[in-house]
């Protein structure tokens, strides 16, 4: 379990002439927990604190107040950090800035090498990871020859090779075109079916996280609302305020309900056809 208690976090911005530190607080007293194999979406506008929150989870940053625990280990206990990092992996937004190797194989090997993975099994593990994300490239392919979607699949393969218990996607699909995005999301869920892990998913696209167990909405450095998606889907005003747009059919269902037409929240084109044909 990931357990975050009253965690605050601030960046030191600059010092003025009198050497006073000016800090900007990006997280205020955040408390949350994420269970094993849970699928949690983190939502909110740019700068609302959701990215900073994820940086606390693997100990890249330490909270200025409060604690973060990963499977019973505190992130401020530095001997635990290697184990914590291994358990909590991140796929970032820009694939180019997270790849270290020149080739597909070298990049996957980077993480494995860092955790001291046995040399004899490394090749096998690399092949396993490439297969897991369905990357259509052999390990000698230079990363510069991959398309955007393939690069992001490689990033996924590289972190999944470490068998994380928690995977954070920090707007990992935002630089992909719709087709590549669809393929990436499908690959992700396929991989999760085969080797379960908890998924912590930051996005601005609600349709990617409709299946999530929980949505956590960040607003000005605080968790504004934390609950199942259904709790959010009828609150269009709140979502809009936080820069989120309901998927078309959800918005249509809400608009119809507002006009007194009784329709289910999970409206589809077939339901709509039935509704309209009922009277014809």
């Amino acid at each position: 379990m990931l357990d975050i208690r009253n965690a605050s976090f601030s960046y030191t911005d600059w010092e003025d002439e009198e050497d006073t530190l000016h800090t900007s607080r990006v997280l205020h007293q955040v408390t949350a927990s994420i269970a094993a194999n849970e699928f949690v979406a983190l939502l909110g506008r740019n700068g609302s604190g959701k990215s900073s929150f994820t940086r606390l989870l693997n100990g890249i940053e330490l909270p200025s107040e409060g604690t973060v625990q990963v499977e019973g280990r505190f992130t401020h206990d530095s001997p635990s950090l290697p184990l914590i990092r291994r358990a909590v992996q991140i796929v970032f937004q820009n694939p180019e800035n997270q790849q270290v190797g020149m080739t597909v194989g070298e990049d996957i090997a980077f993480g494995l090498s860092n955790i001291g993975y046995p040399q004899q099994q490394m090749q096998e593990r690399i092949a396993w990871a490439i297969d897991l994300v369905g990357l259509d490239a052999d390990e000698d392919r230079p990363v510069t020859r991959l398309s955007g979607g393939e690069k992001q699949k490689l990033a996924l393969a590289s972190v999944l090779a470490l068998s994380p218990k928690y995977l954070i996607l920090d707007e990992a699909t935002s630089m992909l075109d719709p087709l590549a995005r669809k393929q990436f999301v499908a690959t992700l869920h396929e991989a999760r079916k085969r080797h379960p892990f908890a998924l912590i998913y930051i996005t601005h696209h609600l349709e990617e996280v409709l299946e999530a167990d929980r949505w956590v909405l960040f607003r000005e450095g605080r968790i504004h609302l934390d609950g199942p998606p259904a709790q959010f889907l009828n609150n269009e005003a709140l979502l809009a305020e936080c820069g989120l747009e309901l998927p078309y059919y959800h918005a249509l269902a809400l608009a119809l309900q507002a006009k007194g037409v009784s329709v289910p929240a999970s409206l589809g084109i077939e339901e709509l056809r039935d509704l309209l044909c009922r009277f014809n």
């Binding site: 059919y249 249509l252 037409v261 014809n280």
Partner: peptide, 25 residues
């Protein structure tokens, strides 16, 4: 398109959820 096929007039062929809801109700 569905609304058009069913003979319920649709304005510009790309109704927003709100516009569609108004037409449907």
């Amino acid at each position: 398109r569905l609304l058009e096929q069913l003979g319920i007039s649709s304005g510009n062929g790309k109704l927003s959820p709100e516009e569609a809801a108004a037409v449907i109700s």
